[in-house]
């Protein structure tokens, strides 16, 4: 048994194994509590489709050597901005969604480029700097949301108040358009086919990217900068490209998230969002130096299924307080903390 345990944890890492066990226990309790199992499955799938692209955004930044992208909130802001513009242009439905995605890309590219230049000057401290750059840009944008000249009555406060609302409802814009795309029912519950397909598509694109010449160079630069430099690869350039890609995926990711969630959350909404994505990819078995698509898919599935299932299960066990939220906090930061101590151990 001990042997087996060691082999399993060596192969998959503690976070993945422990989270899996925890998830299994929750599932068993759910069955005992006679929860609506197809409903839970649907919730899990919705959350996976909702968050998948955001988690995927970690892959280019990790592989290019800038580590976990704690500054992903900057890309997220780009996506929200693009989403707001799409609403301002009175677009609806799939058009609005596609417009939001396309418009987010130039913002993310510019932000990612500048952020990448910054990261090249703080090598070794990307995580700390990234976290606080993210925080400060989010708080700067708080002022931005107040002052930006948006006019759409769906976004600004109806009476009094200045600037955009804290949450912008997307129900009659592009809310759920992707979730409902090609949706079909399984056991009476709708499957968010479109979002899952889109997540899959993005995964394939990123997977293909890492097979290109640039992708190969990026992995080499991230794995061993000295090696890369000695073989004619421009390491700083690769890091910038990785950062840009990460931000672009972050921007797209939040649009997908919002479409499924039904709302854009402005102001301090994006503040802590990167940590969830970081945690998910770590649960999937990625490290601060290496990540692949399998890490993203398994991490997203485990983490968000856990959140989806823990909510009703734990609330039934303990109706008072917000225990499932507490569990989210403990899992998210516990996993990151574990990864940090592992990095330290290697040095």
């Amino acid at each position: 048994m001990k042997e087996f345990w060691k082999r399993i944890t060596d192969k998959y890492g503690y976070p993945k194994v422990l989270i899996t066990i925890f998830l299994i226990i929750l599932c068993i309790i759910a069955v005992i509590q006679q929860q609506n199992l197809p409903g839970l499955l649907k919730d899990s799938l919705v959350r996976i489709g909702m968050n998948g692209v955001l988690v995927l955004a970690m892959v280019p930044s990790i592989n290019s050597g800038t580590g976990l992208n704690f500054g992903l909130s900057i890309g997220i802001l780009c996506g929200i901005l693009a989403g707001c513009i799409s609403i301002e242009l009175k677009l609806t439905g799939m058009t609005a969604l596609i417009a939001a995605i396309l418009m987010s890309i130039p913002f993310s590219v510019i932000a990612g480029y500048l952020y990448g230049l910054l990261l090249n000057r703080v090598k070794g401290d990307e995580m700390t700097v990234g976290t606080y750059m993210g925080f400060s840009i989010v708080s700067l944008m708080c002022i931005g949301w107040l002052l930006l000249p948006f006019q759409s009555p769906d976004m600004i406060w109806a009476i009094g108040g200045k600037g955009l609302r804290t949450t912008i409802a997307l129900a009659d814009k592009f809310g759920k358009v992707l979730d409902d795309f090609l949706s079909f029912n399984v056991l009476g519950e709708p499957v968010p086919t479109g979002s899952l397909l889109f997540f899959g598509l993005m995964c394939v694109i990123v997977w293909l990217f890492f097979k290109t010449k640039t992708g190969v160079a990026m992995i080499a630069a991230g794995d061993n900068a000295k090696f890369a430099a000695a073989n004619g690869i421009n390491v700083n350039q690769q890091r910038v490209i990785g950062t840009i890609l990460s931000m672009v995926l972050g921007g797209i990711g939040i649009v997908i998230y919002a479409q499924s969630f039904g709302f854009f959350q402005l102001y301090t909404g994006p503040l802590m969002m990167p940590f969830m994505a970081v945690s998910a990819v770590l649960i999937g078995g990625a490290s601060a130096k290496k990540a692949n698509i399998a890490n993203v898919v398994s991490g997203t599935t485990l983490f968000f299924a856990l959140l989806a299932i823990s909510l009703p299960v734990i609330n039934k066990m303990m109706p008072e307080g917000n225990l499932s939220e507490v569990i989210r906090i403990i899992v998210t930061y516990g996993v990151i903390l574990y990864a940090l101590t592992k990095v330290g151990g290697d040095n």
Partner: peptide, 21 residues
Amino acid sequence: NKTKGKEMITGLMLGYFANGL
């Protein structure tokens, strides 16, 4: 002591984690 050189980010995450506990 296990994360020398990364004290600040660790401290920050530890704070969030402890908040959960």
